[in-house]
Amino acid sequence: MMAVVVGQDKMTLNRVHAGSSVKVEYLETSPLKERLMSMGLVPGTIIKVLRSAPLGDPMAISVRSYNLALRLNDAEKIVVSPTA
């Protein structure tokens, strides 16, 4: 089920399927925002979604030549767009 949001076209990282690559558009305000940005998740960065943990959460992504695990509710704060 899709969450009811204004603007259904806003894609967030938590909804990206494993194996897909996306581009970071911007990060919504959250306590982790600055830390995520310091780790290289700045607008324009390409992210590849690797997999979910066996129980669906957290997710593993590849960003800037390294792998990072984060929870879906933190990934929800990362707005992304499809790569060309």
């Binding site: 306590p31 982790l32 695990a69 984060l70 933190d74």
Partner: peptide
Amino acid sequence: ERSSFFLELPP
């Protein structure tokens, strides 16, 4: 206090 999980998966 919030709990967070945020972890590098090293090679």
